[in-house]
Amino acid sequence: MTDASANNVTRLLQSRSFVELGARERARALLDAGSFRELLDPFDRVTSPWLPKQGIVTQADDGVVVAKGTIDSQPAVIAAIEGAFQGGSMGEVGGAKIAGSLELAAEDNRNGIPTRAVLLLETGGVRLQEANLGLAAIAEIQAAIVELREHQPVIGVVAGSVGCFGGMGIAAGLCSYLVATREARIGLNGPQVIEQEAGIEEYDSRDRPFIWSLTGGEQRHASGLVDSYVADDSDAIRAELHKLFAQGKPAQPRSRRHAWFLQRLTDADTREQLDAAGVRALYQGDAQ
């Protein structure tokens, strides 16, 4: 074994997968040691009032963990979505927890407390069982991101295979910075929805290599839709957060470069299905 191979094996053995952690453990891993303090934890029993009416077992935190603490010794709040509960879908309670935490962080900033925010996004979007209530909650989250990012960076992290879709995909696009791993997927409509509406010939939801080649973290980064592409390692992701927060707010949020992105869509030839290389060629260039 060469020295390079030995070093790679050593790094692999020493790494700690972020994807394999639950939402609560992810938040704890990113905050400074000893600073984690959960708000509305499971013992508060704040659950969805709508799921039991449909015969669905609730979860005591409604699939969202909100934690206060510090990142690099600066005040921070982390909202982590548990992708293992109802596909990380957003309902009334979980959505209110995220929106409320961002709104309070904005209030902190107005009061001279420079509170940062991190969103750990593992979500398919709105919870269908809560329909309009979930949509309203997502709209409040989006508005709160836009408000807070005027004061401090709001960083979204998409790490696992649940990905980030639907209205929360729009929320991800509103973040000051977006971080993704190779395992992540980011989009508006999920593969099964596209297949259902456009047909399997257009989009085969079972073709995992094809799906990741278009919506996976590596492709989204190469297309300029993600700011940082990192390994599935808790230390690497925490280090990336420190680096991005040290950069401060971006000169122009991605969502305000809409004219450039709309032109890319206008330039796309929809007569033939684009492959991964075609998408990269379309999006690469000066995105200012």
Results as ranks from 00 to 15, higher is better:
159 A>Q: 09
279 V>E: 04
224 G>K: 02
240 E>G: 02
185 R>C: 14
192 Q>I: 15
251 A>G: 10
277 A>S: 13
287 A>R: 08
226 V>F: 06
250 P>F: 00
272 E>P: 07
282 L>Q: 04
234 S>N: 02
265 L>P: 05
213 S>E: 07
247 Q>P: 04
256 R>L: 08
204 D>I: 03
271 R>C: 14
262 L>V: 05
286 D>T: 02
221 H>N: 06
203 Y>N: 11
259 A>Y: 03
198 A>G: 13
282 L>Y: 07
182 R>E: 15
194 I>M: 14
169 G>Y: 05
176 S>N: 13
278 G>N: 09
157 V>Q: 01
156 G>N: 00
267 D>M: 01
259 A>P: 05
245 F>C: 01
220 R>P: 04
261 F>R: 05
211 I>N: 11
234 S>K: 06
192 Q>G: 15
212 W>V: 14
269 D>Y: 01
213 S>D: 04
283 Y>K: 11
172 A>M: 11
156 G>E: 01
269 D>W: 02
231 A>R: 14
221 H>R: 06
258 H>D: 02
257 R>M: 00
170 I>Q: 15
280 R>G: 10
165 F>L: 05
231 A>D: 15
163 G>C: 01
160 G>M: 03
155 I>D: 05
274 L>F: 10
203 Y>H: 09
157 V>S: 00
269 D>Q: 05
202 E>R: 13
267 D>I: 03
263 Q>T: 02
173 G>I: 03
217 G>E: 00
245 F>E: 00
163 G>P: 05
169 G>A: 07
185 R>I: 13
287 A>D: 11
173 G>E: 03
277 A>R: 15
161 S>F: 01
155 I>K: 04
267 D>W: 06
226 V>L: 05
231 A>H: 13
199 G>W: 12
283 Y>P: 02
275 D>W: 06
186 I>Q: 14
275 D>K: 14
168 M>Y: 12
218 E>M: 14
186 I>E: 10
237 I>V: 04
187 G>V: 08
178 L>R: 12
226 V>S: 09
